[in-house]
Design a protein around this nucleic acid. Structure first.
Length: 518
RNA sequence: GGCGGUGUAGCUCAGCCGGUUAGAGCGACGGUUUCAUAAGCCGUAGGUCCCCAGUUCAAGUCUGGGCACCGCCA
């Protein structure tokens, strides 16, 4: 049994459709999952949707649908989007599935049995229009921001998870396991939140059914449903097979959660303390990425500046968008998305550097070697340098991807592309080809270029799977990905055999021009 | 208001424990080549390392203060 690699994306809330933020999370996870598969690991990659709660119920009411019909429709669109983008998740998790609801109830029961849930009555300011209690943030001048009416004091009783009892344990755990929550900045942020208390208390985990029926009933009180995170977070555990499937714990201990910084608190605090209260082990770790700004403004629906991945795909193909996201964002930090920047960068890297290398190599192979991988003659220092560049790229891609640093991995990979371009220029096979006495030298040069392209295609496969497959097909080894083991095979020079037929084909990455909004 | 982060070439960013003339990619500019997607390759461009003060033989790199932006909390 090979080593398990388990990766989850956030469980996206279905009150809207995927935009660049969701797409980024899922694409990074997809890239990691693809890499680890190529490394021969036993990968389980899960994404999914969170379908319960007030907003879904409200949206369904507004649409004149039942919540189930509404979420079937919206969740279907999420699934269809990921399918259209060729993402390779092993499971699309829905919190309305029977398995999920059952698991949530087991979890709630466990925490209840452990004496970690308490029934409490409290008073708050309730807005009838919103059908919920308001926080300071929801009000302005004592009025509900949405309804511009004064909320009324109301008493309600709910179940609370005694989260604060676990804060010192959590702080210790984070201190002792610095790798659990990374990058460090976010670990520090969580520690700060716990340390100063800062309003973090016990967590309300229920809603009375009369007020919210769209949820999972609490097993110990049928008049209440689970609320928000206590329902949603369990998906990660359920996806690993908990509580009934044999082997769930092995998978769980290798599970990494990839999240955006907006949901740091639920994942960095709620979730570990819930698991601890339930007597369950922690997953392997949490990795936090930053946010995309759109032309330096914040992504928000009200600004109408969400980037729809399907629109990007339609305009430019998905590869440039995917490449830009993976290459531009330093993992953990915020980045800015702009269509013109995407075009500029992908033209430089994909069209000019890689696409052109591919094109010139296959063209010369067709012209000077009868469209087959040539038999090389003796090799020298220059060939050795290209081969070393491939080995270096394979090592670097492995190292950086295991740290989730897709931008550094791609940077390293493109150093190989650059090395190959320099190599061709220096060897000048188009000149050598005019001299019959240098025929062997031409064969050696083109052979080296073909091997380099094979290495590039293999290492590119996690990042741009479609392009990699096209490259391998044209290099005459369409099934290469089925047997490869990275990073070791990235530097193999004997897997693409002389005599293998190659195909020139159209531009791998056509140069792009900005398409203005209508 | 509290806590934290960020502020380095036009743009995006590297710069670990303080130490030779501050780096990379992209863009720009010049040169060169023709196998190739008007692509490639070579070279150049000189930015008060946000500001002020301090510690030190020596500070983007440490300390204090200030400014700007961002995040979390209130």
């Amino acid at each position: 049994m090979s080593r398990p690699f388990v990766l989850t994306t956030p469980i996206y809330y279905v009150n809207g459709l995927p935009h660049i933020g969701h797409t980024y999370s899922t694409v990074v996870a997809d890239t990691l999952a693809r890499y680890h598969r190529l490394a021969g690991e036993d990968v389980y990659f899960q994404t999914g949707v969170d379908e319960h709660g007030e907003k879904v119920q409200a949206a369904a009411d507004a649409a004149g649908e039942t919540p189930q019909a509404y979420t079937d429709r919206i969740s279907g669109q999420w699934q269809a989007t990921w399918d259209a983008l060729n993402l390779s998740h092993d499971r699309f998790f829905r919190t309305t599935e029977a398995e999920s609801k059952a698991a949530v109830q087991v979890m709630a029961q466990r925490v209840w049995d452990a004496g970690q849930i308490e029934f409490r009555e409290y008073e708050g300011l309730y807005c009838v229009g919103c059908e919920r209690f308001l926080t300071d943030r929801d009000m302005e001048g004592g009025l509900c921001k949405d309804h511009e009416k004064a909320p009324e004091p109301r008493r309600e009783a709910n179940y609370f998870f005694k989260m604060s009892e676990h804060f010192s344990w959590l702080a210790e755990t984070l201190e002792e396991n610095p790798d659990f929550l990374q990058p460090t900045r976010y670990r520090n942020e969580v520690l700060a939140m716990i340390r100063e208390g800062s309003g973090l208390e016990d967590l309300c985990i229920s809603r009375p059914k009369e007020r919210l029926s769209w949820g999972v009933p609490l097993p110990f009180d049928e008049d209440y449903v689970c609320y928000v995170w206590f329902d949603a977070l369990v998906n990660y555990l359920t996806g690993c097979g908990w509580p009934n499937e044999p082997g769930w714990e092995e998978r769980w201990r290798e599970c990494t959660h990839l999240i955006g910084k907006d949901i740091l608190k639920p994942h960095g605090i709620y979730w570990p303390t819930m698991l601890h209260a339930a007597g369950l082990p922690l997953p392997k770790g949490i990795r936090v990425h930053g946010h995309w700004q759109i032309e330096d403004r914040k992504v928000s629906k009200s600004l109408g500046n969400l980037i729809d991945p399907l629109v990007m795909k339609e305009r430019y193909g998905f590869s440039p968008f995917r490449y830009f996201m993976l290459r531009e964002m330093s993992f953990g930090l915020d980045s800015s998305f702009a269509e013109d920047a995407m075009i500029e960068r992908t033209n430089a890297h994909l069209a000019n550097a890689l696409g052109n290398l591919f094109s010139r190599t296959l063209n010369m192979t067709a012209r000077y070697s009868d469209a087959t991988v040539p038999t090389p003659g003796p090799t020298g220092d220059e060939e050795a340098r290209v081969r070393q560049a491939a080995a270096d790229a394979a090592t670097a891609v492995d190292k950086h991807l295991r740290a989730f640093e897709t931008h550094l991995a791609l940077e390293a990979l493109f150093r190989l592309v650059d090395a190959a371009n320099r190599y061709v220029d220096h060897r000048e096979p188009w000149k050598a080809a005019k001299d019959p006495e240098r025929e062997e030298e031409v064969r050696t040069t083109l052979y080296t270029c073909c091997q380099a392209l094979r290495a590039i295609a293999l290492l590119l496969a996690p990042f741009l799977p479609d392009a990699a497959v096209t490259m391998l097909e044209r290099l005459g080894i369409p099934d290469a990905l089925d047997t490869v083991v990275l990073p070791a095979d990235g530097e193999r020079w004997d897997a693409l055999l002389p005599g293998t037929p190659t195909t020139k084909g159209d531009a791998l990455f056509p140069r792009l021009e900005l398409i203005e909004d209508a």
